[in-house]
């Protein structure tokens, strides 16, 4: 069996190793042929056995959208809920059931538009949820309207003359609300995707993973430069904690003193100034600057990997501890005593 995850300490362990096949359901998968969701599903099904926990102690909660069909295809407990509300529902489950490993599967519209409020509050509280945000920069299920991550000027059915909205960068949003684990990965990079899932699963508290995902029907090629083996290395900054942030053949990330980050050619003079990635620093502002490096349209300088991974008390655990603490102090609740907590009188 693989390593045991500290974040799953309260979740019952599987007695024998599970296989990817055991996480497949008998339901026919109904995404469009070529959808990036297939790759993510396969990666997740292959990864879940690594958690080393019982299948019945995993729950996947989703909202509405193409990605939210995900729970139907994974043979664990699961709920396909309503648009945007998965983080709230998952919070209710996670805070009452420390023996469950709770995952949220959502999309850019579900998480960042209709469900934006629940997403930011789950991250602020640091609920023990693993949130997989499939970002394809489009509304797929409603057949192609721009989403809150679409680039400005997007031509869609609802914006025939171009969208006016300035997009969210999901990683910047998560860092802005001090989410304790923030990462980005790509649907088609199975190895990187699996590594990122592993890091997220190991994290205690909220982990959000933005998965850049392709909708081949309504927004094909949205992430093309990042996925094309010929050119992706010129676009991607692969983040590794403790390692210099390099890009392409001879470029790297630098930082103005206390100022923004930028990408430049490496020279003998500046080589020593290449920024070393530190995912564990408490202050989210460095990671935030890193998240601002990429260009939302041409996608140059796009970091992938773990931006931030820090420790902060986990909401679920604090809630349980507070109950224990009050119970120790007051003694277990006695109903009759509760009724008599105000002045009483006897009628004979």
């Amino acid at each position: 069996m693989a390593e045991s995850f500290a974040s799953l300490a309260l979740v019952p362990k599987a007695t024998e190793p599970l296989t990817a096949k055991q996480f497949k359901t008998d339901q026919e998968v109904r995404w469009c042929p070529g959808c990036g969701d297939y790759a993510i599903l396969a990666a997740v099904q292959a990864f879940l056995p690594e958690l080393g926990v019982k299948r019945e102690n995993i729950a996947i909660i989703s909202g509405i959208g193409c990605s939210s069909r995900f729970p139907y295809y994974v043979d664990t407990y699961g709920m396909h809920s309503i648009h945007g509300r998965a983080p709230a529902i998952a919070t209710g489950l996670s805070t009452t059931r420390p023996d469950m490993s709770v995952w949220v599967v959502t999309g850019d519209g579900d998480a960042l538009s209709i469900g934006g409020n629940h997403l930011i509050h789950a991250m602020r509280r640091n609920v023990n949820l693993k949130i997989l945000l499939f970002n394809n920069r489009i509304y797929g299920l409603t057949k192609g309207q721009y989403s809150p991550t679409s680039e400005e000027g997007k031509i869609t059915k609802s914006t025939p003359y171009g969208s006016l909205d300035h997009p969210f960068n999901p990683v910047s949003v998560a860092l802005g609300v001090e989410c304790t684990f923030v990462a980005r990965t790509i649907d088609s990079d199975r190895k990187h995707l699996t590594e990122t899932l592993r890091a997220a699963a190991a994290h205690e508290g909220t982990a959000i993973v933005e998965i850049l995902q392709n909708c081949d029907i309504f927004n094909d090629g949205a992430w093309a430069p990042l996925k094309d083996p010929q050119q992706r290395d010129e676009y991607l900054i692969r983040l590794e904690h403790g390692q210099p942030m390099l890009l392409g053949s001879n470029r790297a990330v630098f930082r103005e003193p206390e100022g923004p980050m930028y990408v430049a050619e490496i020279t003998p003079e500046n080589e020593a100034d290449i920024v070393i990635h530190d995912a564990h620093t408490d202050d989210p502002s460095t990671a935030f600057r890193l998240s601002r490096l990429s260009d939302p349209v041409v996608l140059s300088n796009t970091p992938i990997g773990v931006f931030r991974d820090v420790q902060r008390p986990v909401f679920d655990r604090q809630m349980a501890e507070q109950i224990d603490e009050v119970t120790r102090k007051l003694g277990p609740g006695e109903f009759d005593r509760l009724l008599r907590s105000a002045d009483t009188w006897e009628i004979k």
């Binding site: 909660i61 919070t91 209710g92 489950l93 805070t95 809630m319 109950i323 119970t327 277990p332 509760l338």
Partner: peptide
């Protein structure tokens, strides 16, 4: 009355109030 095992969750909005309750009901509370 947390000593009765009561969990109270002040949600971010009304929708999260019932959303969290649905999640807890699913969890058997």
């Amino acid at each position: 009355h947390k000593n009765f095992g009561v969990r109270t969750f002040q949600a971010e909005d009304e929708i999260a109030g019932i959303g969290s309750a649905i999640g807890a009901a699913y969890g058997g509370m």
